[in-house]
């Protein structure tokens, strides 16, 4: 059993600044705060090591590409139905709420503008990301945690397989590649259901909806959402794998790791969403 959750990190000698405890350097600060801050500090350090190990595993091109196709199917294709379901109802609600907001003040064809912009820029990537954070992040953390508990990860190492090349990289690559694919389909579904709702439930024609949809459209609206979703996929894949491999013992820790993966994944999605908004909008 490894002391830090995943074996490769033990082989790295940490620098002196990594080993200094924050509480020792700031004796007058309350201990709970220093503990919490030092926890974040350690978390970033673990993340750095995890990414470094992952980068090293990328060189094992005989291992991870073969495992990636299966993960593409599990993480991407199998997530399409739930993503489309969420996007469909998001489009319906957006169209209805937009018409409710615009009544008497703004022309109704702006329903198309609002639905398109909101789905493409924000709700499509973020809602799909949150849904997949639950589905993919939890699945990955639970699977790797169980493998860790049942020593399957150790068995891989015994068989001279790099766990990062065999387990982590295929999942991270699959989630990074397939998140934009799923989000693209979700965007299309959201706009389509918004159109159907506007035509059937509102006093709006297809031509008016499309006019509003095209009104302020920029190509950036699409690629911005796809770039965001790619970063979400990468974050969820990394967090799921990291939490799963960090499990030390027992089913309870597997459950906690799963919860942590989902919560942290959701938080990262929102943080990344804000970061991309600042950087690209």
């Amino acid at each position: 059993m490894r002391a830090h959750g995943y074996a490769p990190s033990l082989r790295v000698r940490r620098p002196i600044w990594f080993r200094v405890r924050l509480a020792d350097t700031l004796p007058h600060v309350p201990r709970s705060l220093t503990t919490r801050v030092s926890g974040w500090y350690a978390g970033f350090g673990r993340l750095g090591h995890f990414l470094a190990d992952m980068a090293r595993g990328l060189r094992d091109v005989h291992t991870w590409p073969a495992q990636t196709v299966a993960q593409l199917l599990r993480i991407g294709v199998n997530s399409v139905p739930i993503a489309l379901f969420v996007a469909a109802f998001t489009g319906v609600v957006l169209a209805l709420q937009a018409s409710y907001t615009f009544t008497g003040a703004v022309p109704l064809y702006f329903v198309g503008t609002l639905v398109g912009k909101t789905i493409m820029l924000e709700l499509g990537p973020v809602l799909t990301g949150l849904v997949l954070a639950g589905r993919v992040g939890a699945n990955t953390a639970a699977e790797l945690g169980t493998m860790r508990v049942t020593e399957q990860v150790d068995a891989l190492e015994t068989l001279a397989y790099d766990p990062f090349a065999y387990l982590v990289i295929p999942r991270v690559v699959a989630s990074t590649v397939m998140f934009p694919v799923v989000v693209a389909l979700a965007m299309a579904m959201g706009v389509l259901t918004g159109l159907v709702t506007a035509v059937n439930l509102l006093d709006l024609s297809t031509v008016e909806f499309v006019r509003g949809l095209k009104l302020f459209y920029q190509f950036k609206d699409i690629w911005f959402g796809l770039v965001k979703s790619m970063s979400f996929g990468f974050a969820i894949g990394v967090v799921g794998c990291m939490k799963g491999l960090a499990v030390r013992r027992g089913a309870q820790e597997v459950g906690r790791a799963t919860t942590d993966a989902v919560v942290l994944g959701a938080k990262l999605i929102l943080v990344l969403d804000a970061v991309w908004a600042v950087l690209l909008l």
């Binding site: 199917l73 294709v77 399409v80 799923v182 693209a184 389909l185 299309a188 796809l226």
Partner: peptide
């Protein structure tokens, strides 16, 4: 095949 078809469909949609 399924993965490739999904990616192609998404690319076409976009």
């Amino acid at each position: 095949v399924v993965v490739g078809a999904t990616i192609v469909v998404a690319l076409a949609v976009i």
